[in-house]
């Protein structure tokens, strides 16, 4: 029996994961190194990669700070009642249930140029939708639960005793946070960061809706892949996809490493 199951497992992995990854590599090299470089050094490709980079950095920073704080409040705070805490806790998962396209649509509906808030911002010269701020908002929405959900179980597990001891001794929570809480949640946070980077790197649906996919302006790496495919420029799509896939595989390795460290602590 063992042989059958193991070979079937290998077969599924081969068909579903390994062959496709190899195909991306060979596809991007179809015209050799030159074709790959040429596709990547198109101005729109460079711009798209830069946009993706900006979004990843900003979103990861914001999501980490707010995610850790919210996790702390949801686990520790005694100023939120039990029932309310439960409600907030279940609200955290909402973005998981929302299709990315709908996530984008929500931002367009609330902050789009035809709405009151959107018009107000536009008057003072600050564009949200079809510009970078909207794309960052959309990605923040999509990645929101990742950090909170990584940090909360760790906090619940370690309990509040040590922190309480530190606070009784008269230390302000900043000190308590850095010297008592942080060392124990560190690997959970790092794992959350890796997940956030991966998700914001690859976000497509929400960003496509909010950005309008304007070349050299609001185009990200994933939406460029989409546009290249639509224009039947498969080689170019492959090259950008290869860069993204290489990052994802790297992140996957980081994930494994962080997971192992997390389990040790």
């Amino acid at each position: 029996m063992k042989k059958v199951w193991v070979s079937l497992t290998y077969l599924v992995f081969l068909i579903l994961l390994i062959i496709p990854i190899i195909k991306i590599f060979t596809g991007a090299w179809a015209e050799g190194w030159d074709g790959f470089i040429e596709a990547l050094s198109r101005p729109q490709a460079l711009h798209a990669l830069m946009m993706t980079g900006i979004i990843v950095v900003v979103v990861t920073a914001l999501n980490t700070i707010f995610g850790v704080m919210l996790a702390l409040y949801l686990v520790r705070a005694n100023w939120i009642g039990g029932k309310l805490k439960q409600l907030l806790n279940s609200l955290v998962d909402l973005p998981y249930a929302v299709s990315p396209v709908i996530g984008g649509l929500m931002i367009v509906l609330i902050l789009g140029p035809s709405t009151a808030i959107g018009a107000l911002f536009e008057d003072i010269g600050f564009k949200i939708v079809y510009a970078l701020p909207g794309m960052i908002l959309a990605t923040l929405f999509v990645t929101f639960p990742l950090m909170v959900r990584e940090v909360m179980p760790v906090l619940q597990e370690i309990g509040a005793q040590q922190e309480e001891a530190a606070s009784t001794l008269g230390a302000y929570s900043w000190y308590t946070f850095w010297h008592v809480t942080w060392p124990s949640i560190r690997w959970g946070v790092i794992y959350g960061v890796v997940l956030t980077v991966a998700r914001s790197l690859g976000e497509f649906g929400a960003v496509l809706v909010v950005s309008g996919n304007i070349m050299n302006k609001t185009q990200t790496a994933t939406t460029l892949v989409y546009q290249d495919v639509e224009n039947f420029n498969v080689l170019a799509a492959n090259s950008v996809a290869l860069v993204l896939a290489a990052f994802s595989v790297g992140l996957l390795l980081l994930m494994e490493w962080a997971k192992k460290r997390k389990e040790v602590h």
Binding site: I21, A198, G205, T222
Partner: peptide, 11 residues
């Protein structure tokens, strides 16, 4: 989970 979905579609 790690791979952008658009890349998955392209594959």
């Amino acid at each position: 989970f790690a791979l952008p979905t658009a890349v998955g579609g392209l594959m």
